[in-house]
Every structure is written in C-alpha cells, then in structure tokens.
Design a protein around this nucleic acid. Structure first.
Lengths: 415, 415
DNA sequence: AACTTTTTTTCGGGAGCCAAAAAAAATATC
DNA sequence: GATATTTTTTTTGGCTCCCGAAAAAAAGTT
C-alpha cells in the first residue's frame, strides 16, 4: 500500500525541486524558478525565503546581473550557498583512494589521491585507514568534519549497498570489508557506498537527462566488466544492492576461468586479463592473477590490433561476439531503450563491433532487439566522481526540511 | 526532476489509499480505515463522504454488524459499491479466450471461455474477433459497455506493453497483433495488455504483499518459459514493455533450436517441447512445431520419471542444470530477494532440484547467490486472472478524482 | 515627473490535514 | 426509566500549504 500523503510532503518535495533547479541552472531569478518548477511566484518567494533563512541559498544582489532585460524591476539572482554543507566523495580503485571535498554547489574544492597498495596492505584494517585518510584530508583542507553531512563511496567489485560493504573486490582479495558503518561511526554523516558503474550511470542521467532517462543500461569494459542499470527513472541496485553484476553472469558453462573462481563468466572473456590471456594463446584456465594485464596489457593489445596483428584482431573479434551474447541476455531480461558501452576497452570497439552485432543477432529474436539504441562512449574517471556528486547532492537536497530526518525510502513502506 | 507537489495530489493519493484499504479488507468501519491508512478520523470522514457522494462506496447500516464490541456507538461498515464500475479481464492462450466480468469489489460476476483455433484462424482478424467476443459477452451479461471502465488483457509470448500489441506469440504464428488500440476504439475504456507471467507476479504481490514485495522474480515453467519482475516495489516491464523474456535469453551459443527460430534459448531446454524432444532422443534442432508436447507430453514424461525411467530422469536433470544457469544469470543481473518457480513443470521439480542447485553453484560466485530465497509454487490459471484484477483495480482506484484524468505516470516526468 | 514594464512581495481565499470538542448511538448501572 | 459509560462519527477551529490577484518595488522611457 502506498504511504499516505500529507502537507509536509508537499513542502519537502517542492523545496527539494527548487534546490535541484538551482543546482542544475546556476544563479537564477525567482521568476525563472517559477517557470522551471511550475510553482507560482508567491510559492517561490515563500520557499526561497525559508531557504535564505537557513543559509542554504544566497541572494546575489551586488554582482552585476546585466541580463538582456532592459526595463522593469531587476531580477535578483539566487544561488546555492556553496558553504552550506560539504560532501566527501571517495573512489576506491585497486591501488588508490581518490578523495574529493565537494561544496553544496557541487564544486570540487580540493582533491587528493592516496596510494594504497592492496597487494601488501592488510584488507582488514582498510576501514581504519580510510577513516584516517579522510580525517587528515579534511584537516588539510581546513574543513571541520561537522560540516560534512554526506560521504559517498564508489568501489569496484561486488558492492552490497544495503549492508554498506564491499563483498568481493580484487583490491581486498575477496574479503568482505565494511565501509559505511565505520564512516558513519567516525563522522556521523549520512554515508553510502555504491558500485562504480552505478555512479557512471547516475552521472549520465545527470549530465543528459533527456537522453539518459527511463530505462537504460551501462556496460563498462575495463579492468573488469561492470554494469549499471537505470530502471523506470531510478538507479537500480537490487534487493541487497549487488544487482547489475554483468561481468559475473555466466556466458559458457564450464568456460574460461574468471578472477572470481568460477568458469565461464563474461568477465573471463572480456576484461583486460581475459583479452591478454586469449591473445597470448594461454589456456583459458590460466590463473588470472598470474597474468600481467591492466592498462599496459590492454594498450599493447590495441596497438597490435591497430597494426593489423591477426591474433590480436581475432581476440577482439571473439570478445565482441561474447559481448553481443551478453548484451542479448541483458536486453531479453531488462529491455532497455538504450545501452551505453564504455570503459577503457571501447578504444578497441571497432575491432569488436562486427562480431558483437553478429552475436546479438544469433542470440536474440529480432522482435526483442530492435527497440534499443547503442551508444559507444569513451570516458574518463571523472564520471565516477560526477555520479557520486550527483547522488550526494540529491540525498542532501531531500534531507533538509526543518529537522525532519527521514528521506522518503523507495524501498519499503512501513506497515 | 521530480514533479512539483500540490494539494490535489494529496487528496488523490489519500482517496486511492482508502479505496485500496476497502478492497483489501472488505467492509470496514471508518475508525479502522483510520488505523489502516494512518489518516485521522476527521479526514476519513471527509474522504469517505466524498466517495459516498460519488457512489463509489456504500454504507452497510441495515445488515447486522454484530462484531465483538459491546458498548458504544456502533460502527457503520463501509464497502466498495460493487456496481460502481466494471472491468473486463481477458486471458489469451493458444486456443482460448477467457473472459471475466469483474465488479468494482473485485468479484468475478460472469466468466466464459471461447475457443479460438489459432491453427486455422487468421491472426490478422483477431482484434475484430476479440472485440466481437467482448461485446457479445457483455450483452449476455446484461452489462452496458459504458459501465466498463477498464479492460485488461494478459497474453502469452512477447507482449509490448507500451505499444499495446502482441509482438510474437505462438497463437498468432509470430505476427504482430494490435490489441489495446482496437479495444480502446471499440469500448472507450482504459485498456492495457501485459505478459501473462507479469500478471502472476502482480497476483503474488496482491495475495501476500509481506512476502512478495521489494525486488523479486517469478519464473514460469510451462508450455513456454516466462518471467515476471517486481523491482523496487513496482512491476517492471522495461522500456518497450517486453522485459523479462527469460525464455528467450540465450543459454548456449548455437545450442538447441527454439520455437522463436534462434538457437540456444533457455526455452529450448526447459519448455514442454524441449523436454519431450530431449527425452525422445531427437536431435536438438528438431523443429519444435513438429513435436507433440503440451499438457499430455509433459504429463507422460513426469509419469515416466516418477516410475524411475532413466531417460526421463536424465532429461529433467539436464533441464534442471540449465535452469540453475538461467537463474544464476538473473540473480547476477537483478539480485532479487526471492525467486518464485511455478508453472505446470514444477510438478517435476524434485527431478530437477539437485541439478539446478549444482548449476547455480557452478555458474555464480557465492557472494552473489546467498542473498535470495527460492519458492516453488504449484499454481493454477486463476493466478493470471487474479493479477489482471489486481492491476485493473489499482488503475481504477487511482483514476477517480473529480473528473481529473491523468493517473500519475511513473515512466516519464514532463519537462 | 509621469508612465511603462518587469519582478517580487503581500494578501485573501480555498483546500487539505489534524486535534479536540461535540454529537450520536449504543450498552451498563442504579 | 434515568443516568453513566463507552465507542464511533461528525463538526469545529486552527494550521499550513498553494495559488491568483493586487500591491509594492525598482528599474527604464517619454
């Protein structure tokens, strides 16, 4: 049963909409906020004066507006108060912790990369390491931890959003590492953790909501294979928060050996180590950990293919066919309107494309595969940070209302 | 951006909640409606008096309430007015059109099965046939078509909910047959079409919302293989409405021949004809259309297995392994909290179970497969009708508000 | 200085919710 | 039979929304 509606909900929602409009459009006059949000001028005045009282937004009088308008009362622009609250956005990769301090306007005011050698470090102490890293980062920045109201983390591997831990990651040699609980305990802020590809998905929706709305999927071919799902206009993370593990969906029973220990995973055909292993003619059960792949391995392979090396070309072509089959299964189950292909390996897309389409056609009946568009998108790591920022800001915007806590939770309605 | 909130929305939502509470609990006093909906008594009075004015609900004074309560003003029970509106729920199977006339209380007041021989009939004229069948059904029932405000259709095969047509079905030899548009034109009611397994999914949520909420999947093993997805508390049907086509997700590249013409679909290993084909030792590219399977074929196979026939046992065991792999892929991508297995073939589940778990274990890393529960559920066709009724009633409840049309559309927010 | 134009604020009204009081309609008690 | 008690329902009054319209503010134009 749907939850009952009451007045508070209206105001909360409308405040949140005004904040979103300001974040998306930068300094804006009340009258334009009215147009953008479809609220009446009177209501915009009421809401913005609340927000001004709370120092969440600022009035931009002194600065010269000098828009095109000539006559009439000049519009006073409003903007988010950058210093109202701060967010820390963190990206965990195999060897790095990337920290960013972000203000309420969504601007990165300081960032820092900390090396973390996952091969030698003890995964069990990682949470403490992370807490210390954040604390010293904030101290350097001269920002009191109490002003940080939101901490977002993106990690590679299998992330359990619901429990707030990394369930399986190459960085932690497969150990389950709690992240959200230690951060929450240390800083008291609202914390969350998500898969890195989910954050790319969120970033796409933020940067081009026209194109990336409704139901779409993102497949990331990188050092590992990830997926993000945006379903019915919401980021989807499944019941325990581990959905969209495209890379560990099986392709061939008993097939090539994957880093996760199983055989036949899509990742075992498409990721960096899989490509290097195949191109080198190694048996497909060669332990992935013994393969030197990563950025260098992949780059060399792409170069070889570009030079016309037959083995490299064949490797990419076979990978493309696997990709086609994988996409076919996702399309059959999810029916997205668009599928975005990204990650370091899309540089080699031209070598995979033909086989990919062939695989897709072999795998899926025409009626099901004609309704989706494919985007191939080179990318950079900033997308992950962008998604974290978008997600954090959305959580913040819907939090502020008096002292009322409780962000409405889409997951479960109370009995 | 979220839509702005206003007062109308509140009232609409609360009215809808009251109607839902009445539908779920039967005759209920205002005071209990207050408890169930968490609305104040004053508000319940206001809303119910509106609903009484509109004849959507009835007051049950004369009849003896005689509840356990002894003293105090007696509660007057309210109930939905069964005659307020009518719904027609239609199930299309290969050879039958099952019609049901349902009143606003969700009770079936008349039903009828019409034979439709899809082998000889012309699929192109099916829409007219359907319209005529409904019209004569209503006439027999003595119900004016104008009182029918909702028509819901469930069909087997690939159903495009968004365009309102059957894209591929064994009943129509693969032709695309429009359903919603002709019905809408003929009757003016709000019409929709959905996949039959989606309706089972909806029925499960309706009948046991505690157990079947959040994110869960339903797999139907029948004369064909279907799936329904309930994600984040909403029935999910994908961008074009063809999601959850589990049966046509590929299992083995270049594998067994499927009814859809492709090779290696899960259906080509798990459906009635696939089992009969395998048990008979026929080559796996034997044309499914030439195989006598259906209810009888499946029943005989189950009997053989029960008697200890080795070939039959092996057939089911192999099918179970495929099922395990298929479930593993769904779990990797969707991460449901529960997976329901149903359909005619679950009678043979005991012969498939061991291999299914083995397949699941082979295919998926442990971290991803330990978060879901499996239900095996015998079923009957009434579930589909139940889901249609639940869906139709939900659509009706959120429709009535003054003359305002516009059921809020979860799919797309306006710019 | 008076008019025009545009934005913002104020004011009054309507709609929704709720808490509390009042009314209604029984049974229990004397 | 009259009064008290209990429980449900309705009414009242108050609060908070939002909105339309009017008023005010703050320019530029004539």
């Amino acid at each position: 049963m749907t939850r009952k509606a009451d007045r508070d909900q209206i105001r909360r929602q409308n405040r949140s909409i005004v904040l979103q409009a300001l974040r998306r459009n930068g300094p804006t006059a009340r009258i334009d906020l009215g147009h953008k949000t479809r609220l009446s001028p009177a209501t915009v005045t009421a809401i913005t004066s609340d927000l001004l009282d709370q120092d969440l937004i600022l009035s931009l009088e002194s600065e010269e507006p000098k828009t095109q308008q000539a006559r009439g009362r000049p519009r006073t622009l409003l903007k988010l108060n950058p210093e109202a609250v701060y967010t820390v956005c963190i990206r965990l990769s195999v060897n790095n912790i990337d920290l960013a301090l972000v203000n309420y306007a969504g601007e990165v005011i300081r960032d820092r990369r900390i090396h973390f050698d996952s091969a030698t470090a003890d995964a069990r102490t990682f949470p403490e390491t992370l807490v210390e890293a954040i604390a010293s980062f904030l101290q350097e920045a001269g920002t009191s931890p109490s002003r940080v109201r939101e901490i977002g983390v993106a990690a590679q591997g299998v992330v359990e959003t619901e429990t707030g831990l990394v369930a399986w990651s190459p960085a932690f040699s497969g150990r389950r590492i709690p992240i959200v609980a230690p951060l929450q305990a240390a800083f008291g802020a609202d914390c969350y953790i998500s898969n890195d590809t989910n954050m790319i998905t969120e970033a796409l929706h933020w940067s081009d909501p026209k194109r990336y709305s409704g139901t779409f999927a993102v497949v990331m071919l990188d050092y590992g294979v990830g997926m993000g799902l945006y379903l019915d206009n919401h980021l989807f993370s499944g019941a325990s928060g581990t959905a969209a593990e495209f890379g560990h969906a099986n392709h061939i029973p008993g097939g090539a050996l994957c880093r996760c220990g199983k055989r036949g995973c899509i990742e075992a055909y498409l990721s960096d180590y899989a490509l290097v292993r195949a191109a080198a003619g190694l048996p497909d059960d060669t332990d992935p950990m013994t393969i030197e792949a990563g950025e260098k391995g992949l780059a060399r392979l792409i170069e070889l293919a570009s030079c016309g090396d037959a083995d490299a070309r064949r490797t990419f072509s076979e990978a493309g066919r696997v990709l086609g089959y994988g996409i076919a299964r996702v399309v059959a189950i999810i029916d997205p309107s668009r599928l975005v292909l990204t990650g370091a390996a899309v540089r080699a897309f031209s070598f995979m494309e033909k086989a990919m389409w062939e695989g897709l056609e072999e795998a899926l009946v025409a009626d099901l595969r004609k309704n989706f568009a494919l985007d191939v998108m080179p990318w950079n790591e900033d997308y992950i940070r962008g998604g974290l920022i978008a997600q954090s800001m959305e959580r913040l915007d819907s939090t502020f209302y008096g002292n009322a806590a409780a962000r409405p939770d889409r997951k479960e309605a109370p009995a």
